[in-house]
Design a binder for these strands. Structure first.
Length: 272
DNA sequence: ATGCCGTGGAAACCACGA
């Protein structure tokens, strides 16, 4: 099963690029972020025609998250992070599908630092930590995928010294991300490419993509039960070079899931 | 290396993004 995350930066303005990528990559489950569309303007029909069912939480102008599936039915579990009923941002949606839990998230940007937006980001991460811990305690196989707006380490930034006081790289935010890993979550892309430069975002200007001046801020975190099922993964970076494209590229993993029953082996064991 | 580009929405500029 292939699970992908893609910050589309406007799901309607980006529809052709999204459909083109879905057709080429054929992911089974997709987490989308930055829909930038109200609930009623989500392109449900076009995605259905492409073979995907969807659940989403839209919002006028900003944010917005969705989960797509071309396999099992998506059963929505929640459409917000718990912990702040006043929080109106559409930044989290969670479903059960194919026997696993998939959470799609769009973390706050948090700039400028310091300030209220940065404080909101830290508080949001605390809520995420609390909820992520609950998922682990519940024991279900789970994936938390999305735009975390964090470069976890120096290797995830083309020029770390320029980003030290940026909300995406401030130590408080990196520590918040590290805390998730300490809970038991596995950063799938980093696990597959240890010590290598892998980026998921390139700015629109200054020829960032051509210069490979990128950031790794889109992540797929796997629960302990799923981590050993990780087969391969990567970033579809060529999508970033397409016309009218997002500033993010899709990141994806392939999991050996649902695990194939080993009937023959079991039968042999019983026979011997 | 300062939103320089890009999106959406409202009213031809503004908020926001990373």
């Amino acid at each position: 099963m292939i699970i992908a995350t893609y910050n589309v930066n406007g799901v309607n303005g980006r529809l052709n690029v999204l459909l083109r990528w879905l057709d080429a990559a054929r992911p089974d489950l997709v987490c989308l972020q930055e829909l930038k569309a109200p609930q009623e303007k989500f392109p449900e029909a076009a995605l259905r025609d492409a073979g995907y069912s969807a659940i989403w939480r839209g919002q006028k102008s900003w944010n917005g998250v969705a989960i797509l599936s071309r396999r099992g039915q998506l059963i929505e579990r929640r459409r917000a992070l718990p912990g702040d009923s006043e929080d109106a941002h559409s930044r989290y949606i969670e479903a059960e599908v194919e026997g696993l839990v998939i959470g799609c998230l769009y973390a706050p940007n948090g700039n400028p630092w310091p300030g209220p937006k940065f404080e909101y980001k830290l508080a949001w991460f605390q809520r995420l930590q609390k909820h992520a811990k609950k998922l682990l305690t519940a024991g279900a196989p789970a994936v938390l995928a999305g735009d975390y707006n964090v470069m976890p380490t120096e290797i995830d930034v083309y020029k770390p010294e320029r980003w030290t006081d940026d909300a995406l790289f401030r130590i408080e935010v990196r520590e918040a991300y590290a805390k998730l890993l300490k809970q038991g979550w596995t950063d799938a892309i980093r696990t597959l490419y240890p010590g290598q430069r892998v980026y998921t975002f390139w700015d629109y200007f200054r020829n960032a993509y051509q210069r490979n001046a990128g950031l790794r801020i889109d992540h797929l975190l796997l629960s302990p039960e799923l981590a050993p099922k990780l087969k391969r993964g990567g970033v579809d970076r060529e999508v970033r070079g397409w016309e009218k494209t997002s500033d993010h590229a899709p990141a994806w993993v392939e999991l050996d899931w649902p695990a194939k029953p080993k009937r023959k082996i079991a039968a042999k064991k019983r026979a011997s």
